[in-house]
Each structure stands twice: as structure tokens, then as C-alpha cells.
Design a protein around this nucleic acid. Structure first.
Length: 495
RNA sequence: GGCCCCUUGGUCAAGUGGUUAAGACACCGCCCUUUCACGGCGGUAACAGGAGUUCAAAUCUCCUAGGGGUCACCA
């Protein structure tokens, strides 16, 4: 048996940001194509002119590039320039209009499609009355059997029209879905779908079938929302005399309320997540596991490992709730493993944004930034949390109001602690972590102040907080002068 | 409402006729520790319900219930 090379596609419409659900669809396509040594292409479904958004294509390619889900054919980006690559183009549907018209003509010639001159108003009225009568809204077949003469004269009169698919009555259409198995549907439950719109553009249903076939697509991996219209697509393949590809419908990604993940419940676009400081590899890793699972217990995967492990047969049937806290855990894991330079590089925009460093100072404060990086590494789940975490130790205009904290400051031993601490720090050249540690140890010995009574007051005097990173690391980050200044500002409260 | 799909702990999920029904996140407890966090150890917690088939059912069949998707000249 001849084995056709696997060819996949991701075929979004150019509307704004890339939804995480779309990314997952793209990812599964990508993983499967790579696993099978096939091709993964990007096609633009821009047949709705009203939906186009400026910069959407750049946005799209950007999201894919950053997450590593990169097409090797179709619309791709090379050196910042968007081009079309491959022998099956054009890969932008609005540039394929003549192809659709040509194929539509054969449908018309075979009586498998027909002109429909119904106005939107009439269609709406029909739908409304059907709904009122408790029926399923469906085209009533008004123009289904117009004579060729009638059609021609209406066209000549310049009456706008659409072209509809002429579905046979009471025929069961079945196909095998890669995830759900055999699916059957009766044409009586299906509508005479519009294939060509008044503006001469095809609808999704026509374009997707023609393009997938012409582009040699072997596996259509797409969202579950397409399942109900797949029989129409299957019928179209039959009309054209083409073999249908293997369909694989992915379960939805859900909100906490188990509805389709949507914008109103917070971040849903890839850009949102990256902007908050989620690492692309963590997002991809998490998404891979949302609807698919490997044979073993592995949770952390590189892209290469995902490709190796991926298997269509292990895709889940039911919808999966997007669990932010698991994503956070996974992202935190990736942050912990990041080389320090990369960690700092990711952190810099957020530290600048928090106002703790100026853009022009970044170069000469590398060492300081690395200290901060190591300090934050164990404490944040995504980079946008850096600001809050840093404020804990970098703010210098704090007022201690917490009663428990004040207790520590009022303690008898704290007076002694304060003076010795100031004295010892003044006596050092530079205050780094090991030096700070030594000082605290000496105080413990000399003044017999230890444990909580040593560290808590020290921490509170220095940061105004009862919690935070290791105190000696804080000393290291703040340095001698700042620490001293902060201590001295506490003088009146202590004495 | 019609049609289609789905149903294992709070969440992601393993499981394909015989298991003490994995694992991960979250949660709780203990340990580590100057605090918080990290880390380590442990714990609570699930086969939607019913009827069949079978020696045996989370796994097969049917019914019920619940949830989701879809019914556009949007994709």
C-alpha cells in the first residue's frame, strides 16, 4: 500500500490575537507532522473581509515563532518578512478566488449546487417563523428548483445571489473521526449550506475542502466545533470525487465554568501569557498535556520529546478545563531551570517597569541583576510577579504598622541588636551575603540574641516586612550604604 | 428545541473484562528553616445513576440524567 506523506495545516483567520486553543491545535498539527516526518503548513483563511484586523498576520506568525510551532510551508516568516513558500500556493484564500469559482462551476454543472436569490430579510423571516413553530431553523428550499431560465434571467436582472450546496434528502453521511470513531448524520438534519457569498467570496466550508484537497492535506486536525459541519465537507469531497482526509477533532479547552474558554474570563491569547512573563516552552508543555497524555508519567517535555512521544490515538475525547495553577507550577519549574543570563534577560523589562532600574543602567548593574535573578528564581511563578516580590525588599519608604512586627521592634533585645548591627556594618568594607551572615553570627554569640529574636527584628528594620527572601541575600542586594540608611531611619522607633 | 459529542477525585489524567483504581496540579499535615518561599515525606479525595451481558465490569450493550458543541452570506 502506498503511504502518503503526512501533510498538516494550521488555518486560522486573521483576527487579532492567537487564542491558546488555537495554539494547541497548531501544536498538535505540528507535533504530528514532525513525528511522521511530514509537512506542516500555514494557510490564511481570510474569506470574511469584514473580520480582517490590522497586523493580525504579523501577530499570528509572531506567536508561532515564539512558541516554536513553526510552519515549514505556506505563510512563513523569514528575517522578519512574511512570504509564501511552497508548491501548493497561494496560501492566502483571498488570492485563490478563481480556484473556488472554477470548482464551484463543476458543482453547478452537476446539479450539486444552486443559485439562491433569497434576501437576508426573507431568510430571517423564515428562520423566525421556524423557531416560533419549534422547528430547527433551516433553509426552506425556496430557490432549490429554479429553472435554468429563471436563474439566468434573475442574474441578468442583476439580483444578488449566493450559491448553496444541494444536499440530497434523507441520506446518511458517515465518516471516521480520529478521536471519536464513526460519526453518522442524516442530510435531513443538515442545511443547504451557502458555498459562495454575495460578494463572490467562498464560505469556509467550500474553501476548506478545495484547499485541503489541492494542498494535499492528509490529516485535518481542528477544533471540536467543526464536528457538526464535517458531514457537509465529506459530501463535498464526494461531489468532487476526491478522497477525504483523515479528520481529527480536538476537544475544547474550557473555563472553570466548563464553557468554551473565552476572553471574558481573563487571559486567553498567547500574547497575553507571554506578556505576563510565561515562558513559551512552559505554555507549549502545558498545552500539550491539555487533551493529550503520554504513555508514561512524564510531565516535563522539550519540544523534541513531545514530537517523539506524540500519538494521535492518545488524544482525549472530553473537554479540558484550563488550569491556571498547574500552568503556574509548570512555568515556575521552567524558571528554576533557566540559565542565569536568560533569567535576567526575561526579568529586566519587569524590573524596569517596576521602576527599580533604569534602561540605561542595565549594562553596568549586571551583577546586581544576577543577584536579584537568583533571589527571585525560587519565589515567582511568572515574571510579572517580580514587581510585587521585589517591592518586598526594595521599597525604602516603609512604615511598620503590623502589631506583631512592632512587638519585635519593641523587644528589649532589639535595642542592643540595633546598635551592634549598625556598628558592625559600619565597620565592614562591603556588605555581602557571607559577610552579613558572619555579622549575625557574631551578634548571636556576643549578645546572646538568637533565632527569631535575632532575624525577625533585623528583617523588619531592613525591609519593614516579616516575610521575604533570605536576609543575608537581601543585604547582598541592597548593599552597605542602603542597609545602614534604612537601619538609621529606624532609630527613633527602636529607642 | 433538532442534531452531534462527552461523562474516573476540585482540576489535568492513567486505565481497553480480573489493579489495594496510577501519576501530576491544587488542598491539608509533618520535616527542613530566622520568616515566606523552595525542597522532602505523608494524607484527604473519583469510576454520574440504573438495567443488562459475564464466573468477573471503570472497561461491553441499552436506558436515564447532566454537561458541552452546533444549527449565519463567521471562521
Amino acid at each position: 500500500m502506498e503511504v502518503r506523506m503526512v501533510r498538516n495545516r494550521f488555518a486560522p483567520s486573521p483576527t487579532g490575537n492567537v487564542h491558546v486553543g488555537s495554539l494547541r491545535t497548531a501544536l498538535y498539527n505540528y507535533l504530528f507532522a514532525k513525528k511522521m516526518g511530514g509537512e506542516f503548513l500555514l494557510r490564511l483563511e481570510d474569506t470574511d473581509q469584514t473580520r480582517f484586523e490590522q497586523g493580525a498576520v504579523e501577530n499570528l506568525l509572531n506567536a508561532l515563532n515564539q512558541t516554536g510551532v513553526i510552519p515549514n510551508e505556506g505563510l512563513i516568516e523569514i528575517n522578519g518578512e512574511v512570504i509564501q513558500k511552497g508548491d501548493f500556493g497561494p496560501y492566502i484564500q483571498s488570492e485563490r478566488l478563481d480556484i473556488y469559482h472554477k470548482h464551484l462551476k463543476t458543482l453547478l454543472d452537476h446539479g450539486q449546487a444552486y443559485h439562491c436569490f433569497c434576501t437576508k430579510e426573507r431568510l430571517e423571516a423564515v428562520r423566525d417563523s421556524q423557531k416560533l413553530a419549534g422547528q430547527t431553523p433551516k433553509y426552506d428550499g425556496h430557490c432549490r428548483n429554479l429553472s435554468p431560465e429563471d436563474v439566468q434571467s434573475k442574474i441578468d436582472e442583476g439580483i444578488p445571489y449566493v450559491i448553496r450546496l444541494k444536499l440530497p434528502e434523507n441520506v446518511v453521511i458517515s465518516f471516521e473521526d480520529g478521536v471519536r470513531g464513526i460519526i453518522e448524520m442524516n442530510t435531513n438534519d443538515l442545511d443547504d449550506q451557502v458555498l459562495l457569498k454575495t460578494d463572490g467570496f467562498p464560505t469556509y466550508h467550500l474553501a476548506v475542502v478545495i484547499d485541503d484537497h489541492l494542498m494535499g492535506i492528509t490529516h485535518v486536525i481542528r477544533g471540536e466545533e467543526w464536528l457538526p459541519s464535517t458531514p457537509k465537507h465529506v459530501y463535498l469531497y464526494q461531489c468532487f470525487g476526491w478522497d477525504a482526509p483523515q479528520f481529527v477533532h480536538l476537544p475544547n479547552i474550557l473555563n472553570d465554568d466548563h464553557k468554551k474558554l473565552s476572553k471574558r474570563q481573563g487571559d486567553v491569547s498567547v500574547g497575553d501569557f507571554l506578556a505576563k512573563g510565561y515562558l513559551p516552552e512552559a505554555l507549549v508543555n502545558y498545552l500539550a498535556l491539555l487533551g493529550w497524555s503520554p504513555e508514561d508519567d512524564q510531565e516535563i517535555f522539550t519540544m523534541e520529546e513531545l514530537i517523539q512521544a506524540f500519538d494521535l490515538s492518545r488524544i482525549n475525547k472530553s473537554g479540558a478545563v484550563f488550569d491556571r495553577s498547574k500552568l503556574n507550577w509548570m512555568n515556575a519549574h521552567y524558571i528554576k531551570e533557566l540559565p542565569i543570563e536568560i533569567l535576567v534577560k526575561n526579568l529586566i523589562p519587569f524590573i524596569i517597569d517596576a521602576g527599580y532600574i533604569q534602561v540605561e543602567d542595565v549594562e553596568n548593574r549586571k551583577e546586581w541583576l544576577e543577584k536579584i535573578g537568583e533571589l527571585l528564581r525560587e519565589r515567582i511563578e511568572y515574571f510579572a510577579q517580580a514587581k510585587e516580590e521585589l517591592t518586598l525588599i526594595l521599597k525604602n519608604d516603609f512604615v511598620v504598622t503590623d502589631e506583631e512586627a512592632l512587638e519585635f521592634l519593641r523587644a528589649e533585645s532589639t535595642k542592643r541588636l540595633y546598635h551592634v548591627l549598625v556598628e558592625k556594618i559600619e565597620a565592614t568594607d562591603v556588605l555581602n551575603a557571607s559577610c552579613g551572615k558572619a555579622i549575625l553570627k557574631e551578634i548571636q554569640k556576643q549578645e546572646k540574641i538568637k533565632g527569631k529574636m535575632l532575624y525577625m527584628p533585623s528583617r523588619i528594620m531592613i525591609t519593614g516586612e516579616m516575610h521575604g527572601p533570605d536576609l543575608t541575600l537581601i543585604m547582598d542586594v541592597l548593599g552597605k550604604d542602603e542597609i545602614l540608611a534604612r537601619l538609621i531611619s529606624m532609630k527613633s522607633i527602636i529607642e
